[in-house]
Design a protein around this nucleic acid. Structure first.
Lengths: 185, 185
DNA sequence: AAAAATATGTAGACCGATCTATTTAGGAGT
DNA sequence: ACTCCTAAATAGATCGGTCTACATATTTTT
């Protein structure tokens, strides 16, 4: 794949992620993806010959890796488990508010919409959540109930992001952050 | 509104809720709503003259009240806060698994899809979540940080339902239920 | 190094299906 | 009798997807 081709492919994934975060799988029409990315229709099916499911699936996985990398950064800075979880939550909250309550979790909407109907997309969401959970788990090695805690903290983060988007307010994020600190103390 | 009319209206809302839970706002096409409910197209726009947004909005609110009523039942049985939260979580989990991972939270998917783009639907979701939060808050009056806890427990429930659907597994529900008990001890 | 050949990527017209919504007419319920 | 409600045809927009012609790189051959 040449330089130009890779750029187009990236722009398509960027646009898809943007639209998927704002409106989910069905909210991201391919016409909009094309309009936002500036790429022509033909390029879309050249780079993603299996169509929309492939495009959205790769977008979800790529976003998952990006968040995972951000988690690694935080972990490398030597934060405690509580600081770590609060840091993840604050970053995602900033992003949500700055985007006008459009960009929440890049996985959640697709998971809720498609888990029951598309095996391929369910698998993509499943894998991303599993990797995030493992990253959290790695910060909790000293805890007896580390597995429970990792799942729970992830659920708290996802739930807080959902409520913040629904209320269009940071309040749920701040309240949940405090309770995560309590739980991990 | 006559007897027959009310029945048709209810069937339309039932079908809408069913389809919205499985696939969200965009996943619930009006053609499917008509097919599942058995009601003709004309009846849909007779009962919901403002179209799809009104239909989905009323469906979300109705589902919110149903869950709220179930919460009242549990509360009336004199359960502790932890038992209460666990009961809500178990009921929703049963429903999710029995439906083949289709029926999760009847509000979450719409909230994530539409909060950024539809004021009317954002408001509907906002109000339902606020009422659930109040019901939880009422069970936590003795706690110092009752407001934080109510939001947090709701976030944990919503997050657990999301992860359970994404993984197609009860495991997140069980793990989070244990941690709710810890948090509320 | 120039030219020909091949691979890579772009551009957009076009397709059938499906979407939400409107309209008009008449049947059913009370 | 008269309102309430149903029934289906239809509209126009948009959906995801296909196709063909063309442009641009990249390699191969001379």
């Amino acid at each position: 794949m040449g330089r130009k081709g890779a750029e187009t492919r990236d722009r398509l994934l960027d646009a898809t992620q943007e639209l998927v975060e704002a409106g989910g799988y069905f909210g991201a029409g391919l016409n909009q993806v094309i309009a936002v990315s500036g790429a022509p229709r033909g390029s879309l099916y050249f780079h993603f010959p299996e169509g929309k499911d492939q495009l959205v699936g790769e977008s979800v996985r790529r976003a998952g890796h990006a968040v995972g990398a951000a988690m690694e950064d935080l972990a490398a800075s030597g934060a405690s488990a509580a600081e770590f979880a609060e840091g993840v939550l604050r970053r995602l909250g900033d992003r949500l508010e700055e985007s006008g309550w459009r960009k929440g979790c890049p996985v959640a909407t697709v998971a809720l919409e498609m888990a029951a109907t598309s095996d391929a997309l369910q698998r993509a969401c499943h894998e991303v959540y599993t990797s995030w959970q493992a990253a959290l788990r790695a910060r909790l090695d000293d805890r007896e109930d580390a597995d429970d805690l990792a799942v729970t903290v992830l659920a708290m983060i996802e739930g807080a992001l959902l409520l913040a988007k629904a209320h269009r307010s940071r309040e749920p994020l701040d309240r949940v952050a405090r309770q995560i600190a309590t739980l991990l103390r």
